[in-house]
């Protein structure tokens, strides 16, 4: 395993393009900012500094103030922290549920697979936002409800990916070789299937994470996600939309934060998957 990781890392570094390097750098910075937000932000999250709304950037206020006179720059740190944390929880939860069910369905097959696959088909027949809106109507917006709901929706997508991967791997002869040796379920799962699914799953995790960020931000933007006084990036955009009319760029900053994360992850995943992309015949070009 160690040796394999070493070769993989060497190949990874060799294929790294400038774009991919830049994306990795941006993501590390963002992650650092999110983790260290309380130490990096100049002011506390809810601290009201001036009486004016949408004060222009200037002394002490790097990006100006928001509609209540709070420091936008500081609020960005906390917003980023909340968005990253919530999205990360969503992605992790979706993966735990989706992957275990997906691999189980692939390995066990039969009725279990049928039942759960049909259920997922029905859930995917729902546009995700509809499911979210319905549950939010019933339970009202709160962070745990949001996390569980979006993770649930996302887990259906993860399930499909994991099941498809599992089904591809399960039919390989090396799985059959292990089965005929008499190996039990646990060994098959951990030693034979999972190591072969890790790479595509990592890519999928990236995609799911960006999806969670976009989704939670959209809900917050609509006023259905994170509720003030807490603020994630989506809430920050919503709160500061009026700023555009005052001629400031206040909603653009949080929006750019979202874009920086999602664009970087998507570019990385794209670069990663393209390493093995096919090319079409020259005679058609």
């Amino acid at each position: 395993m160690v040796e394999h990781a070493a070769t993989a890392l060497r190949e990874f570094r060799r294929d790294l393009t400038p774009t991919a390097t830049l994306c990795l750098l941006i993501l590390s910075l963002i992650l650092l900012a999110a983790i260290l937000a309380p130490f990096l932000a100049p002011y506390r999250e809810g601290e009201i500094l001036t009486t004016g709304s949408f004060v222009s950037p200037g002394e002490g206020l790097l990006l100006g103030s928001d509609y209540l006179g709070r420091d936008l720059f500081s609020r960005l740190f906390y917003g980023l922290r909340l968005t990253v944390a919530v999205s990360f929880m969503i992605a992790i939860l979706a993966f735990l549920v989706g992957c275990s069910l997906g691999f189980l369905a692939a390995v066990l097959g039969g009725r279990f697979d049928m039942l759960i696959s049909r259920l997922v088909d029905a859930l995917i027949a729902f546009p995700a936002i509809m499911l979210a809106l319905i549950v939010l109507t019933a339970l009202g917006p709160s962070i745990p409800v949001l996390v569980v709901t979006i993770a649930f929706i996302d887990s259906t997508r993860v399930f499909r990916v994991a099941r498809a991967l599992g089904v591809d791997i399960v039919v390989q002869d090396y799985i059959e070789a292990a089965t005929v040796r008499g190996e039990r379920f646990g060994w098959l799962m951990w030693h034979e299937i999972l190591p072969n699914a890790l790479v595509p799953l990592a890519a999928e995790f990236g995609i799911r994470f960006t999806y969670a960020i976009l989704f939670i931000s959209a809900l917050s933007f609509l006023g259905l996600g994170v509720q003030p006084p807490q603020a994630d990036l989506g809430v920050l955009i919503r709160e500061n939309m009026q700023g555009l009319l005052y001629g400031t760029f206040s909603p653009i900053y949080p929006a750019l934060c979202i874009a920086a994360i999602t664009v970087s992850i998507n570019l990385l995943v794209d670069w990663y998957l393209r390493r093995n992309d096919a090319s079409s015949p020259e005679d058609l070009q």
């Binding site: 959209a218 933007f221 555009l244 653009i252 929006a255 992850i265 998507n266 570019l267």
Partner: peptide, 20 residues
């Protein structure tokens, strides 16, 4: 690359930019 950038940014951000 441009489509990748577009699917990465939320649609309301595009809307915000267009409006501004």
């Amino acid at each position: 690359t441009s489509t990748l950038a577009l699917i990465s940014v939320p649609d309301f951000l595009i809307a915000v930019l267009l409006v501004s």
